[in-house]
Design a protein around this nucleic acid. Structure first.
Lengths: 345, 345
DNA sequence: CTGAAAGCGCTAACAA
DNA sequence: TTGTTAGCGCTTTCAG
């Protein structure tokens, strides 16, 4: 006892057991049968390995086998529950398949994202799951062409052959709009996240369609915001409510956006839902305990993660990309208290 | 265009540039000066490397240099904002120091944790940050003795020479208790997390001390719960409130615990804070928008992460453990609306 | 049934 | 100023 067991190598084991490294390797890799190694030798090797606390170097193994057992994950913000939940799903199921997860946080910066992905591929990850910033995809298309299994989550690219999974933004938004329309709302402000990303675009699209059905065209000046953050929500809500006091409802594209909007509404003396209705895309934890429980279009975050995970592990096993490229996960309209009828006054 | 550039190796570059691999290696590693490689050769090598899209194999590099540039992180639940926030801090600053983060989720299982740590060391991580399950530390002490830089976060081990960082649970709890005592509360129930973990123990201790100061001894039957989850909070609150109806305040050890308690209180017809006060350790996001904004002992989660990150990167640079082993991060009592005076009826 | 030897891609003595 | 060579620790032909 007491000595820190200096990591012993396979050749240490071999020497100690008086066998060759090849025999040691085979015995320890369960190939005793196949190579008809005598039971006694096999056991001797095993025992000396245990005695020396031998742990094979995965680095050496990776080099030799050209298999690292590494999976790369990139998200824009690990502190955001949406992304950490996805990261978790992928990490856990990668783990279950014998892979380890290399995780990187791009901070929402495309350049950083590009750089991180490069680093990950330099480390020979066998597959990648990325929640991209969502405005540029060249680097991702490149990975895809290099035949590295890749799954894009959330901010997808339309018209691409990459494997992607995201929520059904269009339908979800249409449901939310229908609810607002049914409650008499016609002048609806939009607090958008990063314009140009697919979730943003599709939600805007869903909105336009729902509005068109009742003969309303979406006024572009009613759309504001540029981030999925609290601050962006707060700012754009203030803008909209100030410049267009007749707005009766706000559609927020993220939970933080919605909270920012709520704060702005309070400051401007608007009660929710009496004076202003509020709906938000992406559910909020413990919504029932809110002052005004938010009506939301809840994304099935666990399912997004599971799907991404299963798509990537499947590719790892099969070695080929799945038939279906775009995977759209259903969302659910959760009616709570933040939507009210438009006052007939 | 069009061809997938089959990963070229250093010897490919060397051959293409008509130099030896060593020259190529040196030129590409910025050692041209040192080895007095002619500017023309150096440039030629660089150009051919670019032309071939050469990317050095980090696996081979790791094996040769015995430096992987890998940092391991283990948390019990990445979907929990507390841990994902810490994971983020560590990941980002590891990244800034040129390291990549291998992240693993133990699911709160000690055996899994043990196994994951083994996997990570097999991959030759150069340092480890772990948020342990917190009940067993043998495997962590072993790592520590093997001189692998290791930082424990949150559920620390008392009386250990390992480098650890956690909140000031005792003082925080005392502050919370003082507030409750000042409001006339004497019969206070505790919804605890995983009993036996340092956060739990120290909070209980802080509570005992605060109570002792006013001549009250903590009734052990007023302590219930076994997880930091919503369900545990709900269950134990129901138990306590049912078996001890005269309880006037509840101290929850986590945000989910607190929400569970709140739900239980509502179901049992107790209004917060009129009929029941509620304090919780660990802050809740957007607390101001809650029905009853929770009074909390807010942990400085970003600082926990930053400290862990800086402790680990520092060890990576210095090669030796810091003088100070236990790092205690101050907490802040945030008085909101969930604590009221005990009714004199 | 077991061993010798090549080699994964890279770096760093040691030579020239 | 550049090249030759050994070797990091492992697996796997190929030879007995």
């Amino acid at each position: 006892m007491g000595k820190a067991p200096a990591n012993s190598t396979l050749s240490d084991v071999a020497r100690e057991a008086n066998v060759s490294v090849s025999t040691a390797s085979r015995a320890l890799n369960g190939l005793a049968e196949k190579y008809r190694i005598s039971a006694s030798t096999a056991q001797l090797v095993q025992e000396t390995a245990d005695k020396l606390g031998f742990r094979p170097s995965q680095v050496a193994r990776s080099l030799r086998l050209k298999r690292t057992g590494l999976l790369g994950i990139v998200v824009p913000d690990l502190a955001n529950p949406f992304f950490s939940s996805i990261a978790r799903s992928v990490t856990v199921s990668a783990e279950a398949e014998g892979y380890s997860a290399l995780l990187a946080d791009s901070g929402g910066l495309v350049d950083k994202e590009r750089q991180l992905i490069e680093q990950l591929t330099d480390r020979s990850v066998e597959a990648l799951v990325v929640c991209p910033v969502g405005l540029e995809f060249d680097h991702l298309e490149k990975i895809h062409q290099q035949k590295v299994p890749l799954v894009i989550v959330d901010r997808c690219k339309s018209q691409s052959q990459m494997v992607q999974v995201t929520s059904d933004h269009t339908t979800g938004t249409q449901q939310a709009m229908q609810l607002l329309l049914d409650n008499g709302h016609r002048k609806i402000g939009v607090l958008q996240g990063i314009a140009g990303t697919l979730p943003c675009d599709q939600r805007l699209l869903g909105m336009k369609q729902a509005l068109a059905d009742v003969g309303v065209v979406l006024d572009p000046t009613l759309v504001d915001g540029d981030q999925f953050t609290y601050e962006s929500g707060y700012r754009s809500a203030r803008n909209l409510l100030t410049n267009h006091p007749s707005i009766t409802a706000l559609f927020a594209m993220s939970t933080p956006n919605a909270f920012g909007a709520y704060q702005a509404a309070i400051e401007l003396g608007r009660r929710v839902p009496e004076d202003l209705s509020l709906v938000c895309f992406d559910d909020v934890a413990f919504a029932d305990f809110m002052q005004v429980p938010l009506t939301t279009v809840a994304q099935d975050v666990p399912e997004l993660g599971r799907r991404a995970a299963s798509l990537v592990t499947q590719q790892l096993r099969d070695g080929k990309a799945p038939r279906q490229k775009m995977h759209t996960i259903p969302v659910t309209l959760l009616q709570r208290a933040s939507v009210g009828k438009v006052s007939s006054s």
